[in-house]
Computed example of a mutant assay.
Amino acid sequence: MGRMPKRPASSTSASCPCGLPASYAECCGRFHRGEAKPPTAELLMRSRYSAFAVQDEAYLLSSWHPSTRPPAVGFEPGMRWEGLTIVGTTGGSAFDKQGTVEFRARYTQGGRDGEMHEVSRFVRDGGAWSYLNGTVD
């Protein structure tokens, strides 16, 4: 739980874990480094997925709404995030105050494949998007 984040090298050729057609450095890496804030709830969700993939606990906690933020993020030993699919969004644009993002995240752990399905809720707090909570099924 208290491990330091493992961040990939800021290579311009390393693809971003979130699945968008850009390098990690140009995509979610800029959010993780604090160079920019995600302008939409979907981009925040993608950047949080990437933060789980690279085990960036500091970013996950900073992008979590203070009212629901845990004291630490636990990373499952041996879990590897393999892919993200956005199922749908509501609200969450640069002009909204709240939004939802439904997604499916594929992973492997202990040689077994799995999938997490969640509808995440986001709110704009102080001009920046933050993760409020999610419903997993």
Rank of each mutant, 00 (worst) to 15 (best):
M1K: 09
M1R: 12
P5E: 06
A9L: 13
A9F: 06
S10T: 00
T12I: 13
S13Y: 09
S15Y: 03
S15R: 13
S15M: 10
P17E: 07
P17S: 08
C18E: 04
C18H: 04
G19A: 06
L20R: 12
L20E: 13
P21R: 10
S23E: 09
Y24A: 06
E26R: 13
E26K: 11
E26S: 13
C27N: 07
C28M: 08
G29E: 04
G29H: 02
H32N: 06
R33Q: 13
G34R: 08
A36I: 11
K37R: 12
T40F: 08
E42C: 03
E42F: 00
E42V: 12
E42N: 01
E42P: 00
E42G: 01
L43G: 02
L43A: 12
M45C: 05
R46C: 06
S47D: 07
S47H: 05
R48I: 09
A53W: 01
A53C: 14
Q55E: 15
D56L: 06
D56A: 08
E57A: 15
A58R: 11
Y59N: 03
L61V: 04
L61I: 06
S62M: 10
S62Q: 13
S62I: 01
S62P: 01
S63P: 02
W64D: 06
W64Q: 08
W64T: 10
H65A: 11
P66Y: 04
S67H: 10
S67I: 09
S67P: 03
S67L: 14
S67R: 14
T68D: 10
T68V: 10
P70R: 10
P70S: 11
P71K: 14
V73R: 05
E76R: 10
P77L: 11
G78H: 05
G78K: 03
M79E: 11
W81S: 10
W81Y: 12
I86F: 05
V87C: 10
G88Y: 01
T90P: 00
G91L: 05
G92Q: 04
G92A: 10
S93M: 01
K97R: 13
K97Y: 00
K97H: 11
K97S: 14
Q98S: 15
G99H: 01
T100Y: 00
V101W: 03
V101C: 08
F103H: 05
R106P: 00
Y107G: 03
Y107A: 04
T108D: 06
T108Y: 02
T108Q: 14
Q109F: 00
G110F: 06
G111I: 04
R112M: 12
R112I: 02
G114K: 12
E115F: 04
E115H: 05
M116E: 08
E118Q: 14
V119N: 07
R121E: 10
F122R: 03
V123T: 07
V123Q: 07
D125C: 11
G126W: 05
G127C: 12
A128E: 15
A128I: 06
S130A: 15
S130C: 14
L132T: 08
L132S: 08
G134E: 05
G134V: 04
G134F: 03
D137M: 04
D137S: 14
